[in-house]
Design a protein around this nucleic acid. Structure first.
Lengths: 204, 204, 204, 204
DNA sequence: CATGAATGAGACTTCATTCAT
DNA sequence: AATGAATGAAGTCTCATTCAT
């Protein structure tokens, strides 16, 4: 039960982060309201607001990485897998425009508060390692299919993936300049960018 | 005088943003302290904290775009210009790891507060237009030098620039996985990515 | 059964009073923890925290007076009895430096709360009477042994006893000025003070 | 001005301590009300409730010792000085029955809270030293007048003074057993006890 | 009997803002 | 023009108590 209630609170917190876009301004009262419980009940499960937020973020990362892993694990070909992942990201960005900060694991988004920071820094390396592994499996799939000639350096394939995610992110900012593009067109561009970055290194 | 004091306050605010990494948690008291004046004096120049922050951000964008324009305007060749811009970004990221959020003009980072949001949205389009123009001049330089065969679509060249900035950003996160890379190597990679993304569109 | 559980709670409460030194800051959660039971169980036996504390204090007084009586009742001579009592007090003061407040039956230490006050005031007179009787028996012993020439007024003999207890109390405060004195020396001084106060009334 | 406002708050706090009789249960709201200011204003002058309480107690001790010193300094004879001091004590006890705890400098009354404790412990030794000096001057006066034959040990004269104060304290508890005694009679008894304790050491 | 879970009331504290000087 | 002083509103957290099981 403790586990279940904690997850309710994680999800309440995360949906507020998605709405509010600013971790620092989340109020315990809001979390409690969203989770359908009294403010004081929150403190039965967590020592402080910071503890709750920190754990919620870890929870979010874990779930996100798990989802990523599962999508990669399903035996689709690379392009289909890649597109599902971008669709997924687009969906997340619809809910929370700041999601890219989290997807790039930018620690400064989390280190609002000394308490949150110290709670998270332990788990952070572990999470990042898992994330890199999942991303690597995706890249390996593209290599196995011959789309990428030879395995690039870690930084290179990581950047290629980040860059393709950035395509979705920039498009979701809804600048009028880019409103004419559909999600599908952007995904296609992201896909091409991935391949271009990791191929033809000899050409230039 | 009014002008001068306002700029002092802008700069105080911006240096706090750079340090704190969270707009929502900046306090008027801190700004006043940094600006060497009493809290109440701040209210002689601005109606509210939000007004001050919003104007400070606009000020930052303006200065940033001006700096970008000036670097591009100086008659260096494309590669040198590009590298100076990346050096500049690296310097900004050293002070404020969240700077990319601002550089990509992600509005959600600013919309902490309804007041800030409405103040900024007027100016925002103007700023973005200026930013796009500056970026376009940079891209045009690469075309003029023949590094890019033909002028790509707006979204494509904008993404190419954003992606190259992302290289610096990811590297500045100091993940142990990428600590072996020097700033110069990363700049080179960013430069190559820019060219790859905008060339060879026929190859794939 | 009810009786037994209640006593467990009394003792848990009293040991917390001994540790905390402040009745007002004792928490039901602490009492329950010390008594090895759930917080809600406390409310099976007592209507409120105040009721429990009030009854615990009464229990403490009763036990204390009984102990006092028993020591006096054992057929030792006056000086030995007196010293055992002072030893006893020293032991109590080691656990709770505020014990003197209770030993002098200073009602203000108990009247933290209107509820406690009203609960106690009924019993208080009864307890004080018993206490005075016990003290009187001690004094009578000193008279029977001829150490005191004639029976002094009630206030006088009560003060003589209180004063001798104060010796122990002051010594237990561990002021560096008095650290060189041993417990035995202080007891001797307290004993002499008792005799001096109650004798030679004609001399001065 | 800061000094003046702080003193207002000290006095508000001390009058609440006198009324409430329990340091732990004093509320900032009550202090602010008593001092005629908003709750938040209190925090302009003190970092926390504990800091305010600790400083208030130090202030009380200081003022008390100063008053004691001044009474002793005025060139009255010993008995008159002694009686004025006891009158003074009686007056304090009327306001705050716990005052004896403070007069005996029982540190446990102050150490409710770790913060208060650490703030005070620095000053405590200094205060105690001043207190002992003041008491010593009083005792010296009795020696100078020949009321005490030779100067007793520090512990002995300190105990004699404490004991005489205890007379007032016990009487102020208003036990029905002692209601027939007037303040003047009690003062006389306290005075005699002082002399008896410090004289005739040879007699017993 | 016993208690885990929940919570309302209320405490401390922060901070943007106002106001008198 | 500048600010020290004051504060209301709001946020975090605590804790005695209730209630369903």
């Amino acid at each position: 039960m403790s586990r279940e209630k904690k997850e309710i609170l994680y999800n309440a917190t995360l949906s507020l982060i998605a709405e509010n876009h600013q971790i620092g301004s989340i109020k315990v009262a809001d979390i409690a309201l969203k989770a359908n419980m009294g403010k004081s009940t929150v403190y039965e499960y967590f020592d402080s607001k910071e503890q709750l937020i920190a754990e919620s973020l870890i929870y979010m990362f874990k779930k996100g990485i798990e989802a990523f892993e599962q999508i990669v694990a399903e035996s689709k070909d690379f392009k289909e897998t890649f597109f599902i992942l971008l669709d997924n990201l687009a969906h997340c960005l619809d809910k929370n425009r700041r999601m890219l900060d989290y997807m790039t694991m930018n620690e400064c988004n989390i280190a609002i508060h000394q308490t949150v920071k110290s709670i998270m820094s332990e788990k952070f390396e572990e999470l990042r390692t898992a994330y890199f592994q999942a991303v690597e499996k995706l890249v390996d799939k593209s290599i196995a299919e011959g789309l990428i000639k030879e395995k690039p350096a870690k930084f290179d394939w990581y950047m290629a993936v980040v860059n393709s995610m950035t395509y979705m992110f920039i498009h979701k900012q809804n600048f009028p300049e880019f409103n004419h593009l559909t999600d599908d067109e952007v995904k296609e561009k992201a896909y091409l960018a991935f391949l271009k970055i990791l191929n033809n290194s000899d050409k230039i």
